[in-house]
Design a protein around this nucleic acid. Structure first.
Ligand SMILES: [Mn+2]
Ligand SMILES: [Mn+2]
Ligand SMILES: [Zn+2]
Ligand SMILES: [Zn+2]
Lengths: 139, 139
DNA sequence: TATGATAATGCAACAAAGTTGCAAAATATA
DNA sequence: TATATTTTGCAACTTTGTTGCATTATCATA
């Protein structure tokens, strides 16, 4: 696991530091998306709040993480797939937010539907967030 | 216009006050969605920040305004249609955010597509935000 | 339309979230 | 290992959002 983390950092020309290893491994070992606040808690008292902001920002810029649109003023982050690289995100997949457990998940194998817009609108990217009951909570 | 504003307030059992009239008329006279910050600017120095927060909150609860999901940690508000009422929103329409002018618009006449989710996921609401170039900027 | 009950507002004080500059520490490179 | 470069943590600050409460405005009705 640690090897994988360091590979990802190296591959993105990011120096290998404690906070980057810790934060990236949190995402690799956790199925859902994480907000800044979650990371602060999960990373413990080990890292400064500012470092976490800067690390997340660097990861988004490099195409390691993407942000997920929400109506609740609380940006969530999740791992990108392999097609994302510096400055070029291709995270066009559905996001699911569970009304019960609150987790946000990337649904990589759902088809993003075509949206027919009125005349004059030119679509470049379609973001879809589905709210409902997740796999785990349904049981 | 003022008559319409007061009617909406009365219809929603909200007392008719300066800030409510002002904020509601901003939405009625403005095509796109507005963030809290926009309203603070547009309403001038007339109203306290706290009053604006409370007014927006009241409008959302009453089904006069709805919030729009964004990836940028900046909640935008827009007028609901007539089917929304206290505690029951039905704002299932596409939202469009222009990459050039930054405006966010409700696209009421675009069909919200069905999303096929993997087994186990139960969808209750689908939010669609399209990013691109708007009607005005295309010209 | 005057009066009292009720609700909304503005203010102050606070909490939480996010930003910036900079010296110290860690990492990369040769 | 030595040096250049990058990252970190800290402090100070800004912006955003929340809460309690006294004052003021609105509403209902007599
Ligand atoms: Mn995702
Ligand atoms: Mn809308
Ligand atoms: Zn769940
Ligand atoms: Zn535009």
């Amino acid at each position: 696991m640690n090897i994988r983390v360091e590979d990802i950092l190296r591959h993105n020309r990011l120096s290998i530091t404690g906070s980057r290893k810790k934060i990236l491994s949190l995402f690799l070992s956790h199925a859902g998306a994480l907000a800044h606040g979650d990371i602060e808690k999960k990373a413990g008292e080990k890292f400064d709040r500012v470092t976490i902001y800067r690390t997340l920002q660097a990861f988004v810029e490099k195409g390691i993480l993407h942000t997920i649109p929400t109506s609740d003023n609380n940006v969530r982050y999740a791992l990108c797939n392999d097609e994302c690289y510096e400055g070029h995100h291709h995270d066009d997949h559905v996001h699911f937010m569970c009304r019960l457990c609150g987790t946000t998940t990337c649904i990589n194998d759902a088809y993003i539907p075509e949206v027919k817009l009125p005349r004059g609108y030119n679509a470049l990217q379609v973001e879809v967030v589905v709210h409902g009951i997740c796999k785990n909570c349904k049981k």
